[in-house]
C-alpha cells in the first residue's frame, strides 16, 4: 500500500518535472543550446509571483498572469540579448553564458528574498485532496500534472499542425536552408526561447504552489528536467512526460525505502538509463535514408 501510494505520488510529482522539462527540451531541440539558467528562470518566476501576490497583495490569478507574460518577455530578451549575440572562440560559449546567468539569478534572488523557504499560497485548494481506494490524491498535484499534459499536448500540436511549428522544425533541422525558403530563423529562435522561458515560468509557479522554494533551487530543477528529458528520449515530447513520471516515481519510491535517498534514487535511475538505453526509454528507432 505504501509502495502504491509512493508510485501515485511519484506520478504526480512527474507533472512538475515535465513542465520544467518541456521548455528545456524545446530550446535544446531547436537552438541546440542547453540553457543552464532554465531552472533559475523558473525560480525567478516563482519568487516574482510570490512577491506580487503575498508582497504587493495582487490577486493570485492576476499575479500569475503578469508573471507569465513577463517571462515571455524575459525569454525574448534572453535570446536577443544573450543567445543571439554569443559567438566566441567556442561553439559552447552561449551555454557558458547561460551558466553565468544562472549564477546571477540565483544569488540575486538570495540577496533580495533571503535564503528562507517560501511558498505560493493557494488557500484551501493547495491542501485539498480526494482519497481513492485508500490513496490520497492532492488536487493541486493532480492539477499540475494536468497542466503539464495540456502544455505538452499543446506544444506537440503547435509543432506538428501549424505553419509556425513547421518553420520551427525546419529551422531546427537546418537554419541556413530555412532562410533560403523564406523562414526568419532569428525570429523563430526568439519566439521559441520566449515560449520555453514562459514554460519555465509556469513550471516555477507550479513548483512554488506545491512545495517550499528557496532562491538557489534552480539548479536542482534544471537537473531533474534534464534527467526527465534524457530518460524519456530526446526529441520526443511524450518521452519527456514518461521520463518525468519515471523520475518522479523513482524519487518517491526511493524515499519510501530510505527517507534521505529519494533524489539519489532518481539520479541512479538516470545513470542506469544512460548506461543501458542511452537514447532514452521511448527512443524511436531512427529510420533515415
Amino acid at each position: 500500500m505504501r509502495l502504491l501510494d509512493a508510485v501515485v505520488q511519484g506520478c504526480l510529482l512527474g507533472g512538475q518535472y515535465a513542465l520544467f522539462a518541456a521548455g528545456l527540451s524545446l530550446v535544446f531541440g531547436v537552438l541546440k543550446v542547453v540553457n543552464l539558467a532554465h531552472g533559475d528562470l523558473g525560480i525567478l518566476a516563482a519568487f516574482a509571483a510570490i512577491g506580487l501576490a503575498a508582497g504587493a497583495g495582487l490577486p493570485l490569478a492576476l499575479a500569475v498572469g503578469v508573471v507569465l507574460v513577463g517571462m515571455l518577455a524575459v525569454g525574448a530578451a534572453l535570446h536577443a540579448g544573450l543567445l543571439a549575440r554569443t559567438t566566441g572562440a567556442l561553439p559552447q560559449i552561449s551555454m557558458i553564458a547561460t551558466f553565468g546567468l544562472s549564477v546571477v539569478i540565483g544569488n540575486t534572488l538570495q540577496e533580495v528574498f533571503s535564503a528562507d523557504p517560501r511558498a505560493l499560497d493557494l488557500g484551501s485548494f493547495g491542501t485539498a485532496g480526494v482519497t481513492v481506494g485508500g490513496i490520497s490524491v492532492g488536487l493541486l498535484p493532480a492539477a499540475v500534472l494536468a497542466v503539464a499534459v495540456a502544455a505538452l499536448t499543446g506544444l506537440h500540436l503547435v509543432l506538428t499542425r501549424t505553419a509556425f511549428g513547421r518553420r520551427v522544425r525546419a529551422t531546427a533541422d537546418d537554419p541556413a536552408t530555412a532562410a533560403l525558403v523564406g523562414v526568419d530563423a532569428r525570429r523563430t529562435y526568439l519566439v521559441v526561447t520566449a515560449l520555453a522561458v514562459g514554460l519555465a515560468g509556469l513550471a516555477g509557479i507550479a513548483y512554488a504552489a506545491s512545495s517550499l522554494v528557496t532562491p538557489l533551487a534552480g539548479p536542482s530543477r534544471l537537473i531533474f528536467a534534464f534527467e526527465a528529458v534524457v530518460i524519456g528520449g530526446l526529441g520526443s515530447l511524450w518521452g519527456t512526460l514518461v521520463g518525468a513520471v519515471v523520475l518522479g516515481v523513482a524519487q518517491s519510491v526511493g524515499s519510501v525505502v530510505d527517507p534521505s535517498s529519494g533524489v539519489l534514487a532518481g539520479h541512479l535511475v538516470f545513470l542506469a538509463v544512460l548506461a543501458t538505453r542511452p537514447a532514452g526509454l521511448l527512443a524511436r528507432t531512427r529510420v533515415r535514408a
Binding site: 505553419a163 513547421r166 518553420r167 522544425r169 525546419a170 531546427a172 533541422d173 537546418d174 536552408t177 530555412a178 533560403l180 525558403v181 523564406g182 523562414v183 533515415r288
Partner: peptide, 25 residues
C-alpha cells in the same frame, strides 16, 4: 528562390511539409 546544391531538404518534415515551409508566412 534558390534550389541549393545537394537539395538540403528538411529530413524531419514530410514532402508536403517541406513544400508548406516554403509558403510565404
Amino acid at each position: 528562390s534558390l534550389v541549393p546544391e545537394g537539395r538540403l531538404l528538411f529530413p524531419g518534415l514530410s514532402v508536403l511539409e517541406n513544400l508548406l515551409v516554403g509558403v510565404p508566412a
